[in-house]
Each structure stands twice: as structure tokens, then as C-alpha cells.
Simulated assay, not measured.
Amino acid sequence: MASLVYGDGGDPIHIEDRALAHLKIVIATKLRRNESFTLSWEHPEGDPGGRSTIWIHPSIPLRFTFDEVEPPPISLRWVEQLMHTANSSGGITLVDEVLDAPEIEAAAD
């Protein structure tokens, strides 16, 4: 499980490696444009239920830590879905990856 640490000494936010790799692309794009936004996610299993939202601002330290050494393959479709939420008034919402039918069939083989 990867983690996102926001601010100095904040508690890490645990997010699956593949999801955080995709989220990192979207967050870096927004911050490169000097844009502030919110990031919302549902709490993972094992944590108290519910969801959280944080305000992301370019001046606040941010660190991405991954368990896996090699970065996962990136789904452009998933990045586009996350970017779409990033450009909405609700900010980035960590949405699940939607696989195309051929990808689902290949994964089942």
C-alpha cells in the first residue's frame, strides 16, 4: 500500500500503489499549473468507514511513497477520468479504474 503525506508531519494517507501512481500524474499536472483543488477519497478497508477531503495547495509539502520499486503501467483512460474530476467544482475524486472489455477478458485468462 502506497502513501501520500501532505503537509509537515501529517498522517500518511494510504492508497493502493497503482491508484496513487495515476493520482500523482493528475496532482502534479494541477500543481504545475499553480492550481489549488480538493482531493477526496473513501477510507480503505480496515480504517474507520467514511471518506475524507483535503485542500491541495502548491505551497504545502507533498510526498508520494510507493511500496513497489517499478512504476505500474499507466492507463490513459484512468488518468483522463481523474483529470475530469479534477477540473470539476468538486475537485479530484479518487475513482476506481474502469477496464475496457478486452482488458477484463485478458485479465481473466
Results as ranks from 00 to 15, higher is better:
Pro58Ile: 09
Val26Phe: 04
Leu62Lys: 02
Pro61Glu: 05
Gly90Met: 07
Leu20Pro: 03
Pro58Leu: 13
Val98Asp: 14
Pro48His: 06
Val5Arg: 10
His57Asp: 15
Glu103Met: 09
Asp17Ile: 04
Gly90Pro: 04
Pro48Arg: 10
Ala108Cys: 13
Gln81His: 06
Ala2Gly: 08
Asn87Phe: 03
Ala19Val: 14
Pro58Ser: 12
Ala106Phe: 08
Asp109His: 07
Phe64Glu: 14
Met1Phe: 04
Val79Ser: 05
Thr29Asn: 13
Gly9Lys: 06
Leu31Met: 11
Trp78Tyr: 15
Ile92Glu: 04
Ile27Asn: 02
Glu80Cys: 12
Val5Pro: 06
Ser59Cys: 04
Glu80Ala: 15
Ala21Thr: 01
Val98Ile: 15
Ala19Met: 08
Ala107Tyr: 10
Phe64Val: 09
Ser88Arg: 08
Ser89Thr: 14
Lys30Gly: 07
Ile54Phe: 04
His22Phe: 00
Glu68Lys: 13
Pro58Trp: 02
Asp67Met: 03
Asn34Glu: 14
Glu42Tyr: 07
Gly90Thr: 12
Trp55Gly: 15
Ala86Ile: 05
Thr85Val: 10
Ile27Tyr: 00
Gly90Phe: 03
Ala86Lys: 04
Thr93Cys: 11
His43Ala: 15
Lys24Gln: 11
Met83Ile: 00
Arg18Phe: 00
His14Ile: 11
Asn34Leu: 13
Pro58Glu: 14
Met1Ala: 05
Asp47Ala: 15
Ile25Ser: 04
Ala106Glu: 15
Glu16Asn: 12
Arg51Gly: 15
Asn87Gln: 15
Val95Arg: 08
Asp47Tyr: 09
